Simulated assay, not measured.
Amino acid sequence: MPAPPPTGPLVTRDTIAAQLRLLGVESGEILLVHSSLSSLGWVNGGAVAVVQGLLDALGPSGTLVVPAQSGDLSDPAGWANPPVPEEWWDRIRATMPAYDPLITPTLGVGVIPETVRTWPGALRSAHPQTSFAALGPHAHDITDGHAPDCRLGERSPLARLEKLGARVLLLGAGYGSCTAFHLAEYRIPAPLVEVGRPAPGGGWETVVEVSIDEDRFDELGHDFERDRPVVRGTVGAAGVRLFPVADAVAYAERWLAVHRPRGEEISHPRA
């Protein structure tokens, strides 16, 4: 039986760039992009064409930033999708490869960020679990100095993006993917957690971190979009949202303080 024809629309590098410009993406700006390739339609050239279109819209003076997370560099005791046998845990901890920004792949953020990570000239921040990758003139300023005990807080690229006036582009992605909201968690009372991961020089280490939790980010995003100016449109078949990082963080600080009050005790989760 012949395969069904592809589902459109046909999306190309130039249509991506043109539609982003119509939405208000400006040459020279800084964009933090959360994306879903499959939401766009039939993309001629796949993730490469999407990255090219984004770079075309931003121009040579613009900077493209993506999450480059590698959450699999974590304690196997907390793995649930799928779990691994408990008798494996010690051996996994002892042999897990340390984070290397050049070779550690992204996980769970989609093929577009992985394409940016491996793009010629891309820079990647140093946090072993919640790094960001960037292309453009501000890439070094954004990715440099990501503290190993600050996943998404004041010493992470998120705070740099806020200071530099960057905007978030949700390209077929929902508010549940909006990492900017996490910066607000560092500015309200939040519990601390112990996070395990492979140590840079080999072996295993545990660091104390602020707890982060995106479970209610879709609800937060709904209220944010209702109350604050958010550019809405489409690129290909994908729904798109465009808004300043600073607006999202400020709104999330107020919203989380009311809707998700949290204590400050140290907890000890498995991962």
Score class of each variant (00 low, 15 high):
residue 109 V to C: 13
residue 161 L to P: 01
residue 143 T to H: 08
residue 139 A to W: 03
residue 151 R to K: 14
residue 162 E to P: 08
residue 182 H to E: 11
residue 189 P to G: 04
residue 126 A to W: 07
residue 144 D to P: 14
residue 131 S to H: 03
residue 205 E to H: 10
residue 117 R to I: 01
residue 150 C to Y: 06
residue 121 G to A: 13
residue 171 L to A: 07
residue 111 V to E: 13
residue 164 L to R: 03
residue 127 H to I: 00
residue 137 P to F: 02
residue 150 C to T: 00
residue 160 R to N: 01
residue 121 G to C: 12
residue 173 A to G: 09
residue 190 A to G: 12
residue 183 L to R: 08
residue 177 S to H: 08
residue 108 G to H: 10
residue 111 V to S: 15
residue 198 P to R: 14
residue 147 A to E: 09
residue 183 L to G: 02
residue 129 Q to W: 12
residue 135 L to P: 03
residue 154 E to D: 10
residue 166 A to N: 10
residue 119 W to H: 13
residue 182 H to I: 13
residue 180 A to Y: 00
residue 152 L to M: 09
residue 115 T to L: 09
residue 142 I to L: 03
residue 189 P to K: 06
residue 173 A to Y: 11
residue 166 A to L: 05
residue 161 L to S: 00
residue 152 L to C: 03
residue 126 A to F: 08
residue 115 T to A: 15
residue 164 L to M: 07
residue 189 P to V: 04
residue 174 G to T: 02
residue 121 G to L: 06
residue 181 F to E: 05
residue 155 R to G: 12
residue 115 T to R: 10
residue 142 I to W: 00
residue 165 G to L: 08
residue 110 G to R: 14
residue 198 P to C: 08
residue 177 S to W: 08
residue 141 D to Q: 11
residue 132 F to Q: 06
residue 172 G to W: 06
residue 173 A to S: 07
residue 174 G to M: 10
residue 117 R to L: 06
residue 164 L to K: 02
residue 160 R to L: 01
residue 186 Y to M: 07
residue 184 A to E: 07
residue 184 A to Q: 11
residue 186 Y to D: 12
residue 200 P to W: 01
residue 125 S to K: 05
residue 161 L to N: 04
residue 122 A to K: 01
residue 196 G to K: 05
residue 204 W to A: 15
residue 128 P to M: 05
residue 118 T to L: 14
residue 176 G to S: 15
residue 146 H to C: 03
residue 135 L to M: 10
residue 134 A to T: 00
residue 188 I to E: 09
residue 192 L to T: 14
residue 124 R to M: 03
residue 197 R to A: 13
residue 141 D to G: 09
residue 165 G to N: 11
residue 159 A to I: 06
residue 133 A to K: 01
residue 131 S to G: 01
residue 206 T to W: 14
residue 167 R to T: 05
residue 188 I to N: 13
residue 206 T to R: 13
residue 178 C to G: 12
residue 165 G to I: 07
residue 116 V to Y: 05
residue 120 P to Y: 14
residue 122 A to G: 02
residue 117 R to W: 04
residue 175 Y to I: 05
residue 173 A to Q: 12
residue 139 A to P: 04
residue 193 V to E: 02
residue 147 A to V: 11
residue 193 V to Q: 10
residue 162 E to R: 08
residue 140 H to E: 03
residue 171 L to N: 06
residue 152 L to K: 03
residue 195 V to L: 04
residue 116 V to G: 13
residue 181 F to D: 09
residue 166 A to W: 12
residue 141 D to H: 05
residue 130 T to R: 15
residue 113 P to T: 08
residue 193 V to D: 06
residue 144 D to N: 14
residue 125 S to W: 04
residue 147 A to L: 13
residue 176 G to Q: 15
residue 164 L to E: 02
residue 158 L to G: 03
residue 175 Y to T: 04
residue 146 H to N: 06
residue 163 K to S: 04
residue 171 L to M: 03
residue 148 P to E: 14
residue 141 D to T: 02
residue 120 P to H: 15
residue 172 G to V: 01
residue 187 R to G: 09
residue 151 R to D: 04
residue 152 L to N: 04
residue 198 P to L: 07
residue 170 L to S: 12
residue 188 I to S: 15
residue 134 A to K: 01
residue 121 G to Y: 15
residue 151 R to P: 10
residue 137 P to V: 02
residue 189 P to F: 04
residue 194 E to Y: 14
residue 118 T to F: 06
residue 177 S to A: 12
residue 181 F to R: 11
residue 108 G to V: 02
residue 185 E to N: 07
residue 186 Y to T: 06
residue 165 G to K: 08
